[in-house]
Each structure stands twice: as C-alpha cells, then as structure tokens.
Simulated assay, not measured.
Amino acid sequence: MKLPNNIEGLIKAQNDLDTTTFATYFTEHATVSDEGSSYSGREEIKGWIQEATEKYNMQLTPIDFHQNDTKGKLTVEVSGTFPGSPAVMNYHLELEDVLISSLKITD
C-alpha cells in the first residue's frame, strides 16, 4: 500500500518511539481525541503520545488509508503492552496541507 509521505512519516515516528518527530506532523494548534480525552496544540500532543508510548510501547501497522481532499482515514493494527493487543484502530484525520490539524482515534 502506498501512503502519503506525511502518513508514512507519522507511522515511522511512532514505530521508532520518536515522540518529538511524531508531534511535528501536527499543526501548532492541532487537536487529538483519544480514549475520551482531548489534547490541543503540538506540546500537549507530544505529551500525550510520549505518555502512551512509555505506557504501552505501541507499534503501528497500516492496514488501509483513504483520503478525500482534506479528510483522511487511516486504519492501523496497534500492538503493544495493553489488554487486547493487537487492536484495529481508525485514525480520522483532518489535514492542512501536509500537517494534521485534527486526529480522532476510534476502534
């Protein structure tokens, strides 16, 4: 499956456990919704992914990706040290150019 460079980079940063690079794929005022919590801005997003990575040691395997204009849906298998691993998750994305302005994670 051919992924856009920004999505491929986001997955690589996660799999490399590189939370600093992961956060650079988001706009300065981006929002993330995950497990009933919301995070706003690149610094909060970096904190969120750093905490989740340290807690769960997550790895992403892309399953599917569709993009229509500024909206995208990335389906990934997420594995790590959490109950029910691996799990299939959907990343609902809103994009501004090549950066992510909104990410909502659902199962």
Score class of each variant (00 low, 15 high):
F65V: 04
D97G: 11
N68D: 09
E94P: 03
W48Q: 01
D69M: 01
N57S: 13
N5H: 12
G47N: 11
N90A: 07
Y25Q: 07
W48L: 06
E44T: 14
Q14S: 08
F82D: 00
K12L: 13
N15L: 09
W48A: 06
N5I: 13
Y25E: 05
S38D: 08
S40M: 04
S85A: 07
L93G: 05
L103V: 03
K12I: 11
E51T: 13
P83Q: 14
I11W: 08
A23G: 12
K12N: 12
Y25H: 13
A87K: 15
L95D: 03
L95G: 04
G36F: 00
K2S: 09
I105D: 01
P86W: 04
T75C: 03
K55Q: 14
M1L: 05
D16G: 03
H92Y: 09
L93C: 07
V98N: 10
S40G: 02
S79E: 09
R42I: 13
Q59I: 14
T31L: 08
F82A: 09
L93D: 00
Y91G: 00
M1P: 11
T75I: 12
T106C: 04
L10M: 10
M58A: 08
D97W: 04
A13E: 02
L93M: 11
T61F: 06
I105M: 07
E77M: 15
G80K: 01
H66G: 05
K104L: 03
V78I: 14
V32W: 09
G47Y: 03
D64H: 04
G72E: 03
M89P: 05
A13S: 14
E77I: 13
L10P: 02
K2R: 01
H66I: 14
T53M: 13
T19G: 10
T70S: 07
F82K: 08
D107G: 12
Q59Y: 11
Q59K: 12
I11Q: 01
I45C: 01
S102T: 09
Y91D: 07
P62D: 04
E28F: 08
E44I: 14
H29E: 10
N57Y: 07
F82Q: 02
K46T: 15
L93F: 13
N90V: 02
L74D: 06
E44H: 05
V78W: 05
V76P: 07
G84K: 06
D69Y: 04
F82I: 05
E94C: 07
S79C: 04
M1T: 10
D69E: 03
H29P: 00
T81K: 13
S37H: 10
E43T: 15
P83S: 12
E28N: 06
W48C: 10
L17S: 14
S102K: 15
N15Q: 07
V88D: 01
E44F: 09
G84H: 12
L60C: 12
T31K: 13
Q14M: 11
K2W: 00
D97I: 03
I11K: 09
F22G: 06
N6M: 07
L95Q: 10
K73G: 00
V76A: 06
E77R: 09
T61L: 12
N90R: 02
R42G: 03
T70G: 02
S79P: 12
S85V: 08
E8G: 12
W48H: 01
A87T: 15
I49G: 05
E28A: 08
K2H: 06
A87H: 13
E94R: 08
K104R: 04
G84M: 09
E8M: 11
L74R: 06
R42M: 15
N15H: 11
